[in-house]
Structures are given as structure tokens and as C-alpha cells.
Amino acid sequence: MFVDFFNIDGDDFSISLLSVSDSKPITEYYKRNNPHLTRWEPRNGESLEVQSNWQKYISSIIKDYNLAKFFSFTIKINNEIVGLINVSDIKKRPNYSCNINFSLDKRYQGKGIMQTSLNKVLGWMQKYQKIRCVTAYCMTNNKVSLKLLTSLNFKKVGLFEDYAIVNNEWEDFFLLKKNLTQIL
């Protein structure tokens, strides 16, 4: 299991795979951050503020962990979930690619926690899953996420107009890409 510990600006935090025991903390994360996150996240209609929804969801993705098809990582400070990184659309031969998305508690933005966490997760994906190409979709007006992704050397490679409904509005998204260097 992936578990790592870090310290930035006095905040001790850890990164680990989302597990069934996290259903209550992840529900609390969305309750605290829903007004902030609904501005940036497409939603499928299910409430992320209901613990039983998370219990079902986490139980359903455990098999994807075992098949290396999807990973959901939590970022915790003092056992409180303060962020989430999802790695999806994992492809092996011949692509060795995946897609990444993330969110962070508004209280912890600007402290370098997500940048360090993304670097660690991408390093793990490169080393253990042999991933070479990572993509990310980001709303064109999400300046904070765009700044973070470009600081991690993601490059804009496309624009998708009216790509997804966010907060009841069709939004444009950039597609960004980062190549991880490695020899297979």
C-alpha cells in the first residue's frame, strides 16, 4: 500500500490510498469544502456529502486498485483529509498513460502541499506503474490549478469548448500533458 509522510511549512501530512475506513473523513472533507469545490468540479448528481455514498464508492474501486486501473489518494493532516488526487484512465502497453485530477481544502492552498503531493504520486506512477504520459483537464478560468500544473511542467495541448457542466453551466477546459522520463 502507498503511504508516504511529508512536512511543509510546519504541516505534517501524509498521502495514502483512499480506503473504506476513510468514508467518514472524505464525507467531512466534502461537507467543509463543497461551496469551494462545486465551482471547479463536474458532478454526476450523487451527493458527495453522504457517507453511505462514499462507502459504496470506495468498496467498488478496491478491485480497480488491484488491477492498477484507477487510484484515489488522500492527503491527510492529523488524520483529517485535506486533499484528494485521482489517477484514472490508466493505460499500459503501448501508451503507458493516465489522467490525473485533484482537489485541496481551501484552508491549505498556497502552502505547497498539493505540488509536493502531485510530484510524489506522479513519481510513484512512473516507478511502479511505468507511466510515461500524464494528462489533466482544467477549467480555463481555474487560474490556481493552471498555475500549479504549469509549475509541474504540464503543457497545454488542447482546448475543449463546452466540455463539462460545472455548477449548472457548460465550461471550457484545457487539456494539459506532461511526459515523465523513463526507460521501459
Rank of each mutant, 00 (worst) to 15 (best):
Leu180Asp: 04
Val134Lys: 09
Lys155Asp: 09
Ser23Arg: 00
Arg43Tyr: 07
Phe73Asn: 03
Ile90Phe: 13
Val82His: 06
Gln129Asp: 13
Ala68His: 13
Asp64Lys: 10
Leu180Ser: 05
Trp170Cys: 14
Trp124His: 09
Ile100Asn: 11
Trp54Gln: 08
Ile113Pro: 05
Ser60Glu: 03
Ser23His: 04
Phe2His: 09
Trp40Cys: 10
Val3Arg: 15
Val144Leu: 02
Asn44Ser: 14
Phe102Lys: 04
Met139Pro: 11
Phe160Arg: 15
Met114Tyr: 04
Asp22Trp: 02
Lys147His: 05
Ser16Gln: 14
Tyr163Lys: 04
Asn66Glu: 14
Ser151Ala: 07
Ile75Ser: 03
Asn141Gln: 13
Phe13Gly: 11
Ser14Trp: 03
Leu148Lys: 01
Phe71Gly: 06
Ser60His: 00
Asn78Gly: 02
Ser97Gly: 10
Thr140Asn: 11
Met125Lys: 08
Leu122Phe: 00
Ser151Arg: 04
Thr150Gln: 11
Leu149Ile: 04
Leu148Ile: 00
Phe2Glu: 07
Asn167Phe: 04
Ile90His: 14
Lys177Glu: 14
Ser103Gln: 06
Ala164Cys: 15
Trp124Phe: 15
Cys98Ala: 12
Asn168Met: 10
Lys120Cys: 12
Lys24Leu: 11
Tyr65Ile: 10
Gln109Arg: 01
Asn99Ile: 10
Asn167Glu: 07
Pro94Tyr: 00
Ile8Ala: 05
Val87Pro: 11
Leu37Phe: 06
Asp162Val: 01
Thr135Arg: 11
Cys138Pro: 13
Asp162Glu: 08
Leu84Glu: 15
Phe102Gly: 02
Ile77Phe: 01
Ile26Pro: 06
Val3Glu: 15
Ile62Met: 14
Gln115Thr: 08
Gly158Thr: 10
Ile26Arg: 02
Asn53Ala: 12
Ser16Trp: 07
Tyr96Arg: 14
Ser145Met: 04
Arg93His: 08
